[in-house]
Nucleic acid binder design. Structure first.
Length: 666
DNA sequence: GTAAGGCCCGTTTTT
DNA sequence: CGGGCCTTAC
């Protein structure tokens, strides 16, 4: 049964969804039904006889990809197992799995995340006898990223880092590892070097869609361009006003590049907002009009004025947190809103702690997204490090992590010996360690030698088990964790805090459960460990929360992109927080991006927007006077109602509250 | 040579 | 408050 596009979409959306051939640029304002349009467009392709395997849809986050795939499946009522809806990075992994051998890497390559990357740079620095403390490693890491993705060139001021960069690159290659930038840049390289490979992919992906186009980087754009330049059936959807990832290389100049590279394009603007009330939209429009560099658009809504925007100035950050909890509680009761109808947005992750505590104290169910990923937690990374070594023994960064964890007497001196061999033989640490344990005139004591032997054997044994056909990997991993006695290790590490040890161990069981779920899924039958490892490196958090209904959503503004909530609380609307002091310090021009960020935050709200701005705030261990964010002045006063403060909590009531909090945490 | 305890500092946003 | 790094104790 074909879908009646005309009936389901407004005129502009219809135009966008109906035109399948040729380049299409869609400027889609906040809340303009972009996802709906894309979903229908894909369904329309399928209706028109385009085969699912010829369609490629690229999104920005795993969450968006998952959601889009779900929505298309629901709409068409088809399984669509060969439809590619993926993030850029996950797509990069797929391409590399299929073709990285052309560049001399092996297929079981490891992906280094930010932390691994920093360790790798430190290792490279060691090779060159550069002491790590003379480097601002964070800055170096950013520079390397810019160089790799062509955002920056070597200049007289920065070329002193070039030897280190080259060493880092060599390090990655020698250890069969790639970093996040490589996931995009290496496919581009392969396509440039091997036109036949590119041809193959052009033949496969004849219809390409890109969501959140304003947040694509130059490198990502190159990749799209390569794939699309023959067929030219490429549809990009974006909103320059919502470009908030420039620090990661996003460049909304890409919209202009697209116009140049595909001059025959059709441009469509989606300007009807289906999400927010007039008040909210007016505030957003007024704010964003202060930006100079933007495409003019007239967002409008038919929803009506709605409730006014409210601002509240709490004394300090705990009052802010309590205010948010109380409001949510009372709306939940009085207005029959579900907890998941609330979004609480913050500029930085560290603002979440107090709000979380308050939710806990008030028994408000909530979930945090963004921030530190589940898979980045130390205890999880430890276990993953073992799995990575089992998958790719040459992965030195993870070898270093597990060599003496749990403690097995293999410390600095032993490592130094291993390093010597590795340098001499030009091999990985694992290979060097394997060698060292045999050497007759080994410089190691018998005790250490046997410890090393045990360690190497452990790796070999489990590697073999995992590689067996039809192996029960979950069981093997459980067994491994027991064999290394990770629990014992946690107890020793946290002697004074058994609770913490237990909590960490609990996380490990959760990890095992997640893995088991993955292993049992029919789609994953016969897939190797490497596939799983690569997948989770790209995941922001344990995106498994099936029951994500009935929970308040607490997240950074960045993480809220693409989402919407009935009621939105925007916390910490203070100067130095938004716009963030560091961002302005870096470059005063960043004010426009910070404004867009604020714009994104406001436009998440459907019915009601609250903003809170503390008078004082504890930063580290100091209480500092803050003040309202300058952006508040860019919102017309008549749209705002100033919230009367809650009555001060009386003495004994406060005490009572304190006791409550205490009992929650003890 | 290895392990434990003291000391210092704190990365804005994330695939 | 918590994690990484360095010094001191075995």
């Amino acid at each position: 049964m074909a879908i009646d596009l005309k009936n389901e979409l407004n005129d502009k959306q219809y135009l966008a969804a109906a035109q399948l051939n040729g380049p299409l640029l869609i400027i889609a304002g906040a809340g303009s039904g972009k996802t709906r349009m894309i979903t229908f467009r894909i369904a329309h392709m399928l209706d028109s006889g385009i085969h699912q395997s010829n369609i490629l849809a690229l999104t920005f986050t795993n969450k968006a990809a998952k959601e889009m795939a779900e929505r298309v499946k629901t709409l068409t009522n088809k399984k669509l197992t060969n439809l590619t809806v993926s993030t850029f990075h996950a797509f990069g992994v797929k391409l590399l799995k299929e073709s990285i051998s052309n560049l001399g890497y092996k297929e079981n390559f490891s992906i280094y995340d930010q932390t691994d990357k920093i360790s790798a740079i430190k290792e490279a620095a060691r090779e060159l006898n550069i002491s790590p403390d003379v480097l601002d490693i964070y800055e170096v890491s950013n520079l390397f990223s810019s160089i790799k993705t062509n955002r920056e060139k070597w200049t007289d001021t920065n070329n002193s880092f070039k030897p280190l960069y080259d060493e880092y690159q060599e390090y990655l290659f020698n250890h069969n590892s790639v970093d996040f930038d490589d996931l995009i840049i290496l496919p581009v390289k392969i396509f440039t070097k091997f036109p036949d490979i590119l041809k193959g992919y052009q033949l496969k992906y004849q219809y390409i869609m890109v969501d959140e186009f304003q947040d694509t980087s130059l490198a990502q754009y190159k990749l799209i361009k390569q794939l699309a330049q023959e067929n030219r059936n490429v549809c990009v959807v974006g909103d320059d006003d919502q470009s908030i990832y420039s620090w990661r290389g996003a460049n909304y100049q890409n919209i202009i590049n697209f116009e140049t590279d595909f001059p025959e394009l059709t441009e469509i603007k989606l300007e009807q907002n289906y999400r927010s009330t007039e008040n909210i939209l007016a505030a957003a429009n007024s704010l964003i009009s202060n930006n100079t560099n933007r495409k003019e658009k007239q967002l409008w809504t038919g929803i009506g004025h709605g409730k006014s925007i409210e601002i509240y100035y709490p004394e300090n950050e705990s009052r802010e947190a309590d205010f948010i909890s109380e409001m949510i509680k009372s709306f939940h009761l009085k207005e029959n809103l579900k907890y998941h109808d609330f979004g609480v947005l913050i500029r930085t992750n560290n603002l979440s702690t107090l709000i979380e505590n308050s939710f806990l104290a008030e028994n408000i169910p909530y979930k945090v997204s963004g921030g530190q990923s589940f898979f980045q937690r130390k205890e999880i990374k430890d276990i993953i490090a073992y799995l990575r070594i089992l998958n790719n023994p040459d992965d030195d960064i993870n070898f270093l992590r597990i060599l003496n964890m749990p403690r097995r007497g293999l410390g600095k001196a032993t490592l130094l010996k291993i390093r010597e061999i590795a340098k001499e033989k030009d091999c990985s640490l694992h290979a060097a360690a394997t060698e060292l344990r045999w050497t007759g005139d080994s410089p190691l004591s018998d005790k250490i030698k046997s410890s090393l032997q045990e360690f190497i054997d452990l790796i070999a044994e489990y590697k073999e088990m995992l590689e067996e056909e039809d192996s029960n990997k979950t069981k093997i991993i459980k067994d491994l964790i027991e064999t290394i006695n990770y629990w014992g290790f946690l107890i020793i590490e946290h002697q004074k805090n058994e609770k913490l040890a237990k909590w960490k161990y609990k996380n490990i069981s959760i990890f095992i459960e997640l893995f088991e779920k993955w292993e049992k899924k029919p789609d994953n039958k016969g897939k190797d460990l490497g596939t799983y490892l690569n997948r989770i490196t790209l995941m922001t958090r344990a995106e498994d929360e099936e029951g994500d209904n009935g929970q308040v959503n607490l997240m950074t503004i960045h993480a809220s992109k693409g989402l919407e909530f009935e009621y939105v609380f925007l916390a910490g609307v203070e100067k130095n927080i938004i716009p963030h002091a560091r961002s302005i310090e870096e470059n005063p021009d960043n004010i426009e991006e910070e404004r867009r960020l604020f714009y994104v935050a406001i436009t998440r709200a459907k019915q009601k927007l609250f903003m809170t701005s503390c008078k004082t705030r504890k930063i580290r261990f100091e209480i500092v006077d803050t003040g309202p964010s300058p952006f508040l002045e860019e919102i017309p006063k008549e749209l705002i109602k100033f919230h009367t403060p809650l009555e001060d909590v009386e003495g004994d009531e406060a005490l009572d509250y304190f006791e409550q909090m205490k009992s929650k945490f003890n």
